[in-house]
């Protein structure tokens, strides 16, 4: 049986950006949930329809990509042995994905033995988006990635960018010196000691692929939130992000698993409702705007307040 999972992201009544990385003690960096088949199916169809949007690579990252592929397949087979199996026969690796009824044979580091780039292949087995950063003397650079479920950004645009430039759109992160601190921290991440953090926003609509490219498809729902539909239309969107060092190539793997939960389900939990209510009431105007909440935050706050009154 696959699990349901929803990591609630707010740990205090006030939200500010911070270096909220924590050690990933479980060492489980890939989560397989009961939405697996649906979400992996969606990823594959997005990759097929929009390859430029969903996958980018510098060709010199191929060795690092192989390292990621090995890492991901080992994770799957070790953490979920009932669903995934990996075994070696001579030079051949055999990966069995019983959830999708697939079996793949390939040879390590042999690009011709796979139907696509190794990072792309790894991403097609998991719900996570996979971003690979190469470490240079003084910076981390996004040099390969498979991204199907972005929170309003573009891999096509951010491809090739250093960590700092990637974060220019985030209010305050560069000017406060926080981004530079975080990058220095990341450059010292050691192999075998992964880190994790949660990132959150609200979504109007139940949609994982909220790319900057398709903003005109999903953005308008922000303006259709009403008192009557808010509980079902608006979702808390959580990105569980893990970071780990790939020792052979010294690159960093950044994984993003996106979860959506409609507000009417959030409000089943009094503590969560209260937290979200307080955070939304006090969120700085810049973050309200950046997270795209300007049009409907008030409706959400009203709704949560009402739910809290009903339940006390």
């Amino acid at each position: 049986m696959l699990s349901s999972r929803f990591p609630f992201p707010l740990s205090a009544d006030i939200f500010q950006y911070s270096n909220n990385l924590r050690p990933l003690d479980t060492n489980v960096s890939i989560q397989v949930t009961h939405e697996y088949t649906e979400e992996v199916g969606l990823k594959r169809s997005l990759l097929k329809q929009h390859p430029e949007r969903c996958f980018r690579e510098e060709i010199h990252t191929r060795d690092a990509q192989w390292e990621v592929l090995n890492y991901v397949l080992h994770q799957l087979s070790q953490v979920y042995p009932e669903h995934f199996r990996l075994r070696q026969e001579g030079d051949n690796w055999i990966f069995e994905n019983t959830l999708l009824g697939e079996e793949v044979h390939f040879r390590d580091l042999d690009n011709d033995s796979l139907s696509c780039a190794p990072l792309d292949f790894a991403g097609r087995q998991v719900q996570e988006d996979l971003i690979l950063l190469t470490q240079y003397d003084d910076k981390l650079v996004l040099e390969a990635g498979q991204l199907c479920f972005p929170g309003n950004w573009s891999l096509y645009f951010d491809f090739g960018m250093p960590f700092m430039d990637i974060h220019t759109p985030v209010p305050g992160l560069i000017d406060d010196g926080l981004a530079a601190k975080i990058e220095r921290f990341l450059m010292r991440v050691e192999s075998g000691k992964p880190w994790t953090r949660l990132n959150w926003s609200l979504n109007a609509g139940r949609r994982l692929d909220t790319s900057a490219e398709t903003f005109d498809e999903w953005g308008p729902y922000r303006y259709r939130v009403t008192e009557d539909n808010v509980g079902h239309l608006v979702h808390l969107r959580v990105e569980e992000q893990n970071l780990m060092r790939m020792p052979r190539s010294n690159s960093l793997l950044f994984t993003i698993h996106t979860y959506l939960m409609p507000l009417h389900e959030i409000t089943q939990n009094q503590t969560w409702t209260n937290r979200l209510y307080r955070v939304l009431c006090t969120l700085s105007p810049k973050l309200v705007e950046y997270k795209g909440l300007s049009a409907y935050r008030d409706v959400v706050v009203e709704y949560l307040a009402k739910e809290l009154r009903v339940n006390t």
């Binding site: 960018m161 759109p169 900057a212 005109d216 953005g219």
Partner: peptide, 15 residues
């Protein structure tokens, strides 16, 4: 938001 690689700034869709 500037990309050196593309030598372009991002033009975000406006509704």
């Amino acid at each position: 938001h500037y990309s050196k690689k593309l030598d372009a700034v991002m033009g975000y869709i406006v509704l």
